[in-house]
Amino acid sequence: MRKILLLLIITFMSPTLFAEPNLPKGIIKITPRPAPPLNLENMDGEKFVLERHTQHWRFVHFWASWCGPCRKEMPAIEKLIQKMFGLNVKFFIVNTAESEDTIFSFLGGVAPNINTLLDRDGLTTEAWKPRGLPSTYLVDPNGQIQYVVIGGQDWLKPQYLTFLRQLPILKNKNNK
């Protein structure tokens, strides 16, 4: 009986994931939660930190070269980054636990303009708890994860571009 009750509560009362009308396929609105820390270097040794309060939305994407959908999706993400340059979204592309040689040779073939961040030990990825790889999170300017994206998507389709461009610039605490 307690099990059934628990299941009912999970199903009806705590919709961590819920559908929102007009979202492009694969994008799911979630109950906002703080983004875990992300403090990584890119392939040139430059440090990047996902700040709690900023002006931009953040597109945080976890990938690995052995992941088929990642391989398929990466060229679209490379072009998406170009199309969104200077707009409301910044990109944090994170490789999960692969060697620099592997990453370098993979990106050289599919998306040479992406300078990925390196999660060398995989612990940052673990902290974000993705459902699988690839996984994308959309983090609002106040550091809250607002959307998760299941699987790889064709980000160059108009519905995805429109969705990303229309993400609202929230009034964050630094702007008060």
Binding site: G68, P69, G132
Partner: peptide, 13 residues
């Protein structure tokens, strides 16, 4: 050919 998300895509190899 594994086309899916999650660890499965591993199995491409």
């Amino acid at each position: 050919q594994v086309l899916s998300i999650t660890p499965l895509m591993l199995l491409i190899g």
